[in-house]
Design a protein around this nucleic acid. Structure first.
Lengths: 226, 226
DNA sequence: ACAAGTTTCAAACACATGTTTTAATTCTAT
DNA sequence: ATAGAATTAAAACATGTGTTTGAAACTTGT
């Protein structure tokens, strides 16, 4: 049973992109390693850019599905939901996906870091469109889990994403479960502390206490209106 | 007064590298934008790779100096030192440096993310050699600040670095002070919570209580023996 | 078995890249 | 002012890039 050239392309490209970056990886290298013809990329995908997007789309779809599924379970399990479970629903699929890809551990996440650093408009739009949907769900869930909504919830979640992405890219083949537990604990403490701080501020200065939810618009959480 | 071509090169290259990546940025683009001759890069630096390293070296030196200076102050101020001040010494210079570069805010940090994602051995060695030295100092400081050393201190610091890097790359021209305060609070809570957890584990299972410091070797904290 | 549609292949194309070379220019110290 | 060094300039070089092309090989439905 031979796997289709398209799959071979996606797999090989993902691996090479993660290791060397998008621009540094050539189509000749990809096709040679995948043992397909050079023209295969342009035939099946149309262009190298389209390849990049396709490589991403595949993993993002997967990741989002798993995250939202776990989030759903967390929300069904108790009301208000457990903050720990919410964050775990966010963290665990990413770590697992990263570890599952055999060989190099942080491959997928290094790919994520690259994509994020990249200024490629097309790629960015694909990612953030998919990401924003999920992030909104998680932000709402966190709001339910905490007695007080932190003033800068968006920023806090960015912290979590950053910690997750970076530590994954760093971690070799380390224990996924342990890392997940560690990170969830770390972030829960941070979020709770921040919520506490918000309460303290709002009681000493009541004028600040109302616009807590306006801080959710920028960055990842915003939708592309077009 | 005209600034030297070398400086013009470093400045322009830094800007373009951050926006487009190392490979995507061409020497022709850099030299055109810097208004110097194409051959200037090879004359002054020797090669494009050397340019990349040079761009980095300059900022890293600066960043390390500021961080260690603030850390020194924090250690002198009180004994045991304040965890908040230690983390602030780590976070603040980076945020400030990122904001100071006029125009685009997260430029330098996006550069960092790229460099980190990059698999360039030469660049990696330069960075981690410089980084490891500083990280060791901070890890030791944190050990003094906490009543109990968390079992996975290295990982915790990676979380901090990740949160810092990512949120910086994300943040436009936002309020540096506010972000710094937020992040420090976030990470302090995480670290304290983790320390608490370590205590709990070590009392229920005393066999684990001794090798707390062995977890400091891998990743950023390790030195290159060569 | 055969024709029509897919997919693979090797070669070529047009162009952009980092680097080198050689000459002109500017700087610097005597 | 002038010789010698350092820097800038313009052009060319060799190589590698993504993409296109047109024919061959394969697959599929009848």
């Amino acid at each position: 049973m031979k796997e289709s050239t398209l799959l071979k392309l996606l797999d090989t490209a993902e691996l090479l992109f993660a290791d060397q970056g998008f621009h540094a990886t050539t189509l000749r290298q990809i096709t040679r390693e995948a043992e397909v013809n050079l023209a295969a990329v342009n035939y099946h995908l149309g262009s190298k850019d389209a390849l990049i997007v396709a490589v991403f789309q595949r993993r993002m779809d997967d990741l989002n599905k798993q995250r939202l599924s776990l989030l759903g379970e967390a929300l069904k399990a108790s009301q208000p939901p457990s903050l720990e479970r919410i964050l775990e629903a966010f963290v665990h699929p990413a770590l697992q996906m990263s570890a599952r890809s055999s060989g190099d551990g942080g491959r997928f996440m290094r790919l994520m870091m690259r994509a994020w650093a990249e200024n490629n408009t097309r790629l960015h739009r694909v990612i953030s469109r998919q990401y924003s949907h999920v992030m909104r769900s998680f932000a709402n869930a966190v709001k339910q889990a905490l007695p007080v909504v932190p003033a800068d919830l968006r920023q806090q979640l960015d912290f979590l994403i950053g910690a997750l992405t970076y530590s994954m890219a760093e971690t070799e083949d380390s224990d996924v479960e342990q890392t997940a537990r560690s990170l969830v604990r770390f972030a829960c403490a941070g979020l709770r502390q921040s919520a506490q701080q918000t309460v303290k501020n709002s009681t000493t200065d009541p004028s600040e206490s109302e616009h807590q939810d306006q801080s959710l618009t920028p960055s990842l959480l915003q939708e592309n209106p077009a």
